[in-house]
Structure formats: C-alpha cells, structure tokens
Design a protein around this nucleic acid. Sequence first.
DNA 1: GATGATTTGTACGTATGTATA
DNA 2: ATATACATACGTACAAATCAT
Lengths: 231, 231
Amino acid sequence: MNASDGDGESGEQRTLLSDRIRNRLTDQIASGELPAGAALDEQQLADRFGVSRTPVREALHQLAVSGLVEMRPRRGVVVARMTAERIMDMFETMAEIEALCVRMATYRMTPLELSRLTELHEAARRAAADEDMDRYDDVNHAFHEAIYLATHNAFLAEQASALRIRMNAFRRTQLRQEGRMSRSSDEHQSILEAVAQGDGELASRRMRAHMLTAATALRRFIESHEAETRA
Amino acid sequence: MNASDGDGESGEQRTLLSDRIRNRLTDQIASGELPAGAALDEQQLADRFGVSRTPVREALHQLAVSGLVEMRPRRGVVVARMTAERIMDMFETMAEIEALCVRMATYRMTPLELSRLTELHEAARRAAADEDMDRYDDVNHAFHEAIYLATHNAFLAEQASALRIRMNAFRRTQLRQEGRMSRSSDEHQSILEAVAQGDGELASRRMRAHMLTAATALRRFIESHEAETRA
DNA sequence: GATGATTTGTACGTATGTATA
DNA sequence: ATATACATACGTACAAATCAT
C-alpha cells in the first residue's frame, strides 16, 4: 500500500540508504506530512534518519529530478511549491494519461483482468458507502493500477504510476470534498461498464471526464486557500 | 541543439557540477556514444570530467531515476540495456503522448504557433531533400517541441520532452533506415494539414500512425541486431 | 573455496556562495 | 555596504561488498 518497500527500520539493509530515504521522503511528501514549501535541511534529515548527510543529499537530488522538490543551488531544498496553474496542468495531463490507459486496456485486457477490476470497483463502492476514506483511497489506487497493468505496456504503466504518486498529495485533499467519494465511485461504475462493453473510446472519454471533475473540485479548494499557501 | 546548456568548458561555472555531468552523460547516451550496456565507472568518469567522484555519483543516481541508466547496489552502473519489448513499449507510449499533444495543440494553438510550425516543417523538408540527417534531426526535434508547447500545458510539454530525450538514441538509429527521412517528412505534412484544418482527432490519428511507422522500422532493425546487442 | 584487488557506499571535513544583521 | 553566520557543494577518507585470481 506504500511506495516504499517494507523497511523494518532494523534488519540488514539490502537496498541503498539513499533509495530508502528517497522512498520515505516521497511518501511523506505525497501524504502531506511534508507540505509544499517545507524546507528540507540536509543535516536535519540526516539526524532524523540516523545517517550521514551523503545519502540524504543523494535522495534530495533524485527527488529534484522527478520534480517533487525544488533545489536552488546553494540555497537549499524545499518541497516543490506549485502554482495553481501547474497543478491544473498536472491534473489535465493525468486525466489524458488515464484516458489513454483505459482505452488501451479495454482493447487488451484479459477476462481475468476485467474480473479483477470489477472486484476492485465493488470493494471501492463498499468503502464509499462506509465513508471510509483511507480504505477508499487504497482501493481506488488499486483500481487505477489495475487499469495501467491491463494496458500490457509496462513502460506506460510505470509512467502512469509515477505520475499518480506525484499527485497523491492533491488527490486526498480533493477526496475530502463533500460527496466526492460516492460520486467518484459512480463514475468508476460507468467507466467500467464501457470497458466491459469493449468500447474503449467511450471508456476513455468517461475517464477523462472523471479526472477532470476531480480537478475542478480541487481547483475550487486551491483557489479558496491560495492566499495562505503563498505565505 | 543540445540538451545541455552551452557550457563553454572554460567560463565560470554557474550551474552544479552534477547537473552538467548529468547533461553531458545524457547527451552521450542519447547519441549512442555510450551504448546500451556500457559500464559507467565512477572513478573513471570522475577522471574524465576532471572532478571528484561525488558529483559523478550524484549525476548517475539522477540518471537512474529517469531510467537512462540501471544501478544495481554495489554492482555498478550501466547504460540501461532495454529489451526489444521494452523499446517497443516506449515507442508506443511516445506515439500516444505525441498523438495526445498534437490533438490538444490543434485546439489551442495560436496563429503564430501554427505559422512557426509550418516554417519548421518546411525547413525539415529541405533538410530531407538534401539528405542532411543531422539537420533533419534537429529540425524534426524543434517541430515536435513546437507541438508540445502549443498544447499550452507546460507540464505535459515537459513530460513529452523528457520522454523524447530518452528515446533519442533509438530515433537516430531509426532515421538511418532507407528513405525514412523523406517519408517522415511526408507524414509530417499530412499531420500539419489536419492541424491547419483544426481537426485534432485526425491530426492525432496521423501522428500516432507516424510514430508507429517509425517504431516498426526500428523493430526490424532491432530484431536483426538482437544477437550482438545481447552480448 | 579463500584471498586480494577493485569499486561502490557512507561518513566527514573544508570551502564557496547565499542570506542576514 | 560590509561582515558574519550558515547551509550547501565538492572533495577525501574509510568501510564494506563484489569480482577475479
């Protein structure tokens, strides 16, 4: 359920320290634990993770490549603070990528994959009915991941996943909007129906609309909070 | 002309060493100067660039994030060696992203952007007529970049650019195929016509076909050379 | 299979450049 | 404006692991 591998904090380290730190920072940024604009001090993080500055530094540089943090040479690193416009651009891109994925997936998925997708959707419905946001979030994630995989294009699936991780912080914010959870679930239903009928174009259009609806909900939220975000 | 900023090798260094090294390595990988599978020894590269291992190491880690190189902990770094299947997946993804970009661009581009695109296409035609591959490559790049920008979605434009850089090594290989250059130019023409007519869907389909044609040309090349690539 | 050589991974120190008083 | 404080960027040293013999 987590982007990072289950590091037991103790056991022998098979992976690179910098990778583990990068994963943990990614999670913390995606979850909002580290909010946009937060300063990331090398020494401070090193102390917090109990390592030297070196792996921390490498992790930060890597995060800069994927755009999660912003580095200004000699001026320090902060969690990427995005403008409302950029966030909307990201959302639109995500919407198009998702639309693309579901179209491709419709034409290529196996019966097994379709049944798995249906299962996930029903689990999401139940979570929405229970108003269990954490659970809905997880299942929702799995639903979209299942679509990525069903494209049978591993590269595209990776790209889509990476994008989704980058947008996580915003997605949860957006899901908190009134009634979004059950409405989102309804939209999934109609997407799934198009997939089951084998109509990729329709599924694609519905997915795009689904994502853009979410974006619009978010935009209202952002705009109303813009002043304080800027401070 | 080059992904890296024009570092004059001499002048005062305004940018980070690790960034400059990363850019140079990116170019060398994209150009095929560093072929897939080539080992990238930290010390060796440090000597070559006249710096210590630290910035080299950071550059390598960053390249790993974008997938250009493969790192196995304690076992070193090699230029990402991709299977034919993965390359085809990348091409297909690129084709879809390009199709998406041109569709969006068609609906959003300004007259100025359209005229710039037309100019670039004509320059490409001339280069193709002269069989000047280097020049064609450059202008072709500019043509696609112009489309990305005309989407008026900065994030999508960045993503598309990044993808294009990753595929550079293959694209040039592919362009060497017999007659590809002029045929590619013809395909651009038909895409441009659809754009000018404002038919985004048509432009999109033609772009996808254009990219997939290129992919097919490449696949033949890869498959005939697979044995030696594997060695 | 064990030992040595090579190379990576991590830690730490120093200097340069940025921000602040 | 100058100087001081501070965090980063790079270099160097050491440790650990892989590979070659």
